[in-house]
Design a protein around this nucleic acid. Structure first.
Lengths: 206, 206
DNA sequence: AAATAATTTAAACAAATGATTAATATATTT
DNA sequence: AAATATATTAATCATTTGTTTAAATTATTT
């Protein structure tokens, strides 16, 4: 097939990319089942038929978008886990900061991933390497080197992700309970960047 | 042929209750958008038209089911928070144990609630009293009585719920990462019943 | 028992929705 | 420039899906 060339010079994105970008936004906002291909077409400013022309089906498009999301979600984590210049505690801070900035721009991302993994078990979940990403990471070695395990590494991992991610997932609830507006809530999230490493550090001490 | 006893209030479940029960199961398993009224009809063993006969619309049925879920979710918590015979630490253990047993039988419940709250903002969210449930609870008084706050009560609440709920929400992910089967994973969840109160207690100490 | 009300059923409807088609336009190659 | 390939469009299709309808069945009242 011939090489793809941008059709007009004003086009920052070609059609395929436009669709994918809009699709990611709509899928994340509405979930798979509630997403209408017509909405994707509108938001990307392309003709409805082009979705099937480029991506065969809604499901196929979804799987591609999902794969990208997962890569972005795990890729960043993987990088941090393997930074050899950071201590265990420093890594904790980086992880929290990383997801904090990610969810600030994409607040629907974590729930989207968790929901679709649970409801679309046949969806392409890039599981390969996920386990190794953790167990072969510099982070994991540091944790083991701490001596006799004061805490199960699996519990430790669960906890840091839970403390970081959950407040974003449950933000509608916590905003109500705490009577907080968006600004105040984000302020609390920022505070957690310093707090979570402290709490996590305490878990390491017996 | 023996005549069936129907349409009497002595029935184990009348039609209305059968529909509601099946609806809750399907809604929780599939989410609102992916739920088909025909599936609800099948699972409750009733005629499709009866859903609209008794509940007007799918959306209306959903709101009723959702309200029940929320009541169950918060009601149990409220009871524990106000038990005056329990210390702060004892309450922590009870809360974790409570949700642990709840999610054991209804693993889809937490994600269902969080997802639908975010995506169905017009849905009846029983927010009234949610804030007061917390701030006027015996638990909250105990927390304040601890003296100068070593931790923001809001962060404290976030953390205990995050540590308890999140591992259930993200179980498909953690099972992969940790290479755990259902039995092993549930064993870990049970361990957290003792562990979470310990970790939470550490957060109170500065 | 007859009349009335409530419940259940099968069939159908109307709108929505993912996908396709055939024609047209644009780009690339010959 | 002609021919061919690629991309885009409007219209349409075939299903799905929530809902409605009218008739039948069962329960309750008179």
């Amino acid at each position: 097939m011939a090489k793809k060339i941008v059709h007009s010079k004003e086009d920052v994105l070609n059609t395929e990319a436009k669709i994918k970008q809009a699709a990611q936004a709509v899928f994340m906002r509405k979930g798979y089942a509630a997403t209408r291909t017509r909405v994707i077409a509108e938001e990307s400013g392309i003709n409805l038929a082009l979705i099937n022309y480029y991506f065969r089906s809604k499901e196929n498009l979804f799987n591609l978008v999902m794969l990208d999301c997962m890569k972005g979600f795990i890729g960043g984590l993987k990088q941090i886990l393997n930074r050899e210049d950071l201590s265990l505690e420093e890594k904790l801070g980086e992880i929290v900061a990383h997801y904090l900035s990610m969810f600030k721009s994409q607040p629907d991302l974590p729930l989207f991933i968790l929901h679709e993994i649970r409801h679309n078990p046949n969806g392409i979940v890039n599981t390969l390497g996920m386990k190794q990403t953790l167990t072969k990471s510099h982070f994991y070695q540091q944790l083991k080197a701490e001596g006799p395990p004061k805490i199960d590494p699996m519990h430790f991992l669960m906890n840091i992700i839970a403390l970081t991610v959950f407040p974003f997932i449950a933000s509608p609830l916590f905003k109500i309970v705490g009577d907080l507006d968006d600004a105040n809530y984000m302020k609390m999230m920022n505070d957690r960047k310093k707090l979570i490493p402290i709490w996590m550090k305490q878990m390491l001490q017996k």
